[in-house]
Design a protein around this nucleic acid. Structure first.
Length: 554
RNA sequence: GUCCCAGUAGCUCAGCUGGAUAGAGCAACAGCCUUCUAAGCUGUGGGUCGCAGGUUCGAAUCCUGCCUGGGACGCCA
C-alpha cells in the first residue's frame, strides 16, 4: 500500500467514525464507503456521497446529515485542510497541501514495479485466445483478438493475478481434412493438372504456396501414391507449415503463449470418451446421432455431439478441452472469441454445468469485428477468398506498436474501424506516437539535466510541486495502480491506453507551461526532475503493459 | 422469429457496479518555436446521450417496449 492509499484509508475511517459519533447510523447501516476523486478541482481532492446514501436510514435531508457529520469530523487525524458541503449533499475534502508530492519518491522507489498490486489475490486465471485454425494466415480480425488477449493477460499479471496464456490448436477434425484436400488440389494444379478446389476448401495464397513447395521438393512423386497416404502426408505437411507461420507471426506481434494445447492429444488420451461418459445423463440418441440436452441449461436447442457418420462435431472435443482446463484448477477460465462465435457461448456454458462445474468460472470475452478501410473503401474480410489483410503485412506497413495500441484502444464490445491508409501514412493522428513522444521528451530532459550536473537527487523536496500542472500530474500518477486493478477486475484493457494517453497529455501540457531545468531555482529544478522521472517510469510501465515500446528519443 | 453487440459533438470513440456543469482525439476557426524535441501547447465554436415509458432525492448509466446498424442462429469450424 502506498502513501496515497493510506491517506485514503485513513480518510474513510475518519468518515466512518464521524457517522457513528454523530449517531447518524449504526455500524451495520453504514454502506460501503466510496471515495471518489472529483474531476472538478473545486470539488476537492476526495468526495463522498455518504450523506445521500444515509438519507433513508437517518430519515433526514442529505445536506443536514452532511452538516452533522462535518461538525464531528476529525480533520487533524485525517490530514484534511478543509471540508465543504456541496450540491445535493456531497462532502468534499481538501487535503493538506503536500500530501500528493509523496507519490513521487514512492514511484522512484518502486520503479518498474509501480502500478503492480495485489488486487487479484493471486487468483489463477487462464486466458485462451487467438486459437486460429492452422489453415491460413493470421489476419486483421485475429490480430485484434491477439492484442486484446495479450494485454488483458499483462493487466492481470500486473494486478496480482497468476495468469496463463494458452492457444488451442485445432489439429484434428474436419477443417484439417479440408486443408489436406485443398493442398492436394493446389499441388496437382502446380503440376499443371486442371483439378478443382474442394468447395469448402481454403483459397489463401499460402495454400498455393504449399502446393508449389511440394512440387519443388517432391516433383510428381505424390501423384502416383495411394490417395489416403498422400492426404495423410499433406495434412502433416500443411499443419506444420501453417502452425509455423502462425507462431512466427505471433512472435513478430510480440504475443507469447505459456502453452499450446493440441486437440489431438484429447483423442490420443481418450479424453473425449471420458467426457462423453461424464455427461451421459444429459445425452440421448436421435436420428442416428448422439445429442446433448443443452436446453436443460438454458441453451436454445439441443446440440449434436456425435454425427450420423460417427464423427464428432466441433463441440465434442471442445467440451473435453474445457473439462481439461477446469481440471487444471484455475479459478477463472476466460476465452477470447470473435463476435461471429457468440452464439456458441450458451452451449459451452451448458456443457460446463453438465460436467458439474460452476458456470461462473467460465467466461467469454467477445471481440467485435474489425472493419478494414483501404483506398477509402471498406474491404470485406474473408478467409475463403484469401483477400484479407494478413497480420504480417499489417506489421510491416504500420509497425507493431501502432497496431497493438490501435487494437486495444477501444472497448472489445465496440466494432473497430481500421483505416489502412491512415495507419500506413504514419501520420500524427496515431495516438501511440503522442504517448511515445512524451516519454522521449522526458528522456531528453533528463539527459540534459545530467549534462548540466543536475542529475536526479533522492533528496528532492517534492513539497515544492504545487503548480497547477504539477498537481494535475501528481494526481494522475497516483491513480495508476488503481487503473490497472480496475482494468483487470472489469477486464477492460482499453482503460490502460486511455490512461497513458491522458498522462502523456498532462506531461505535454506541463512541458509547455513550466521550465524544468532552471539553474536559478535549483531546489525546484531538483523536484521537477524527480517528477519527470516519476512520469517517465509510469509511462514506461503503462506502455509495457500494452506491449508497446517506450523510445528514448524520436 | 430468437439471441449477442452497438447507437453519446460533423467523424471515430470514452464515460455505463446510478451522483455535481456529459469528456477526448480528429475535423473547423484563432493564437504560441531567440527558451529543456512544434510528432507539442493554448483558446473558441459544436450535444433532444436513438425514441417512449418506468424505477428514485438523482438516470447517458438500471428495468420494459420500440426503432436503426452489425453479427449469430448447421449432424461446419
Amino acid at each position: 500500500m502506498n502513501v496515497l492509499e493510506q491517506t485514503e484509508e485513513t480518510l474513510k475511517q475518519q468518515i466512518r467514525d464521524a457517522v457513528l459519533r454523530a449517531g447518524l447510523a449504526s455500524e451495520e447501516e453504514i454502506p460501503e464507503m466510496v471515495l471518489e476523486k472529483p474531476k472538478d478541482k473545486r470539488h476537492g481532492d476526495f468526495a463522498t456521497n455518504i450523506a445521500m446514501q444515509l438519507a433513508r436510514v437517518a430519515k433526514k435531508a442529505p445536506r443536514q446529515i452532511a452538516e452533522e457529520l462535518v461538525n464531528v469530523f476529525d480533520r487533524v487525524k485525517a490530514s484534511v485542510e478543509k471540508v465543504e458541503i456541496a450540491g445535493p449533499g456531497f462532502i468534499n475534502f481538501f487535503m493538506k497541501e503536500d500530501f500528493l508530492g509523496s507519490i513521487v519518491p514512492n514511484i522512484l522507489q518502486e520503479g518498474e514495479a509501480y502500478g503492480r498490486s495485489r488486487a487479484g489475490n493471486n487468483e489463477r486465471v487462464q486466458v485462451e485466445f487467438v486459437s486460429v485454425n492452422p489453415t491460413g494466415d493470421l489476419h486483421l480480425g485475429h490480430a485484434r483478438g491477439a492484442a486484446f488477449g495479450d494485454v488483458l493477460c499483462n493487466v492481470f499479471d500486473a494486478a496480482g493475478y497468476r495468469v496463463e496464456r494458452e492457444y488451442y490448436i485445432n489439429d484434428a477434425g474436419n477443417q484439417i481434412d479440408n486443408l489436406a484436400l485443398s493442398i492436394e488440389a493446389r499441388y496437382l494444379q502446380a503440376l499443371g493438372q486442371d483439378v478443382p478446389m474442394p468447395e469448402d476448401g481454403y483459397f489463401g495464397e499460402d495454400i498455393t504456396e504449399i502446393g508449389k513447395q511440394l512440387r519443388e521438393e517432391y516433383g510428381e512423386q505424390w501423384v502416383q501414391k495411394d490417395r489416403e497416404e498422400r492426404l495423410a502426408f499433406f495434412k502433416e505437411y500443411g499443419l506444420s507449415y501453417e502452425l509455423g507461420k502462425i507462431k512466427e507471426d505471433l512472435q513478430a506481434f510480440k504475443v507469447h503463449f505459456d502453452s499450446w494445447f493440441s486437440e489431438r492429444s484429447l483423442y490420443k488420451e481418450n479424453k473425449i470418451g471420458e467426457t462423453l461418459e461424464k455427461i451421459a445423463t444429459y445425452t440421448y440418441e436421435k436420428d442416428g446421432a448422439t445429442w446433448f440436452r443443452s436446453t436443460e441449461f438454458g441453451d436454445d436447442k439441443d446440440r449434436v455431439l456425435i454425427k450420423q457418420d460417427g464423427t464428432y462435431t466441433y463441440l465434442t472435443p471442445d467440451i473435453a478441452y474445457h473439462k481439461n482446463k477446469l481440471d487444471r484448477g484455475f479459478d477463472q477460465i476466460i476465452n477470447v472469441w470473435g463476435a461471429d462465435h457468440h452464439g456458441y457461448i450458451p452451449r459451452m456454458r451448458a456443457a460446463i454445468q453438465a460436467l458439474g462445474y460452476p458456470a461462473e468460472k467460465f467466461s467469454v470475452k467477445i471481440v467485435q469485428m474489425v472493419n478494414l478501410f483501404a483506398d477509402g473503401e471498406k474491404v470485406r474480410m474473408s478467409k475463403r477468398t484469401g483477400k484479407a489483410v494478413a497480420l504480417r503485412e499489417l506489421i510491416e506497413e504500420v509497425g507493431v506498436d501502432a497496431v497493438r495500441y490501435y487494437f486495444v484502444m477501444r472497448s472489445n464490445d465496440s466494432q473497430l474501424d481500421f483505416d489502412m491508409d491512415l495507419a500506413r501514412s504514419e501520420s500524427n493522428d496515431n495516438p501511440v506516437f503522442y504517448v511515445q513522444y512524451a516519454h522521449a521528451r522526458i528522456c531528453t530532459m533528463l539527459k540534459q539535466a545530467e549534462g548540466k550536473g543536475l542529475s536526479f537527487d533522492c533528496d528532492a523536496d517534492v513539497s515544492l510541486l504545487t503548480a497547477e500542472k504539477e498537481t494535475d500530474l501528481l494526481k494522475k500518477l497516483a491513480a495508476f495502480p488503481q487503473v490497472i486493478a480496475d482494468a483487470a477486475r472489469m477486464q477492460t484493457p482499453h482503460k490502460v491506453t486511455q490512461y497513458v494517453f491522458d498522462l502523456a497529455s498532462l506531461l505535454h501540457s506541463f512541458y509547455n507551461a513550466e521550465k524544468v531545468l532552471d539553474t536559478d531555482h535549483l531546489e525546484r529544478t531538483k523536484a521537477r526532475i524527480a517528477l519527470m522521472q516519476a512520469v517517465k517510469i509510469t509511462l514506461a510501465n503503462g506502455l509495457r503493459v500494452l506491449g508497446v515500446t517506450a523510445p528514448e528519443k524520436m
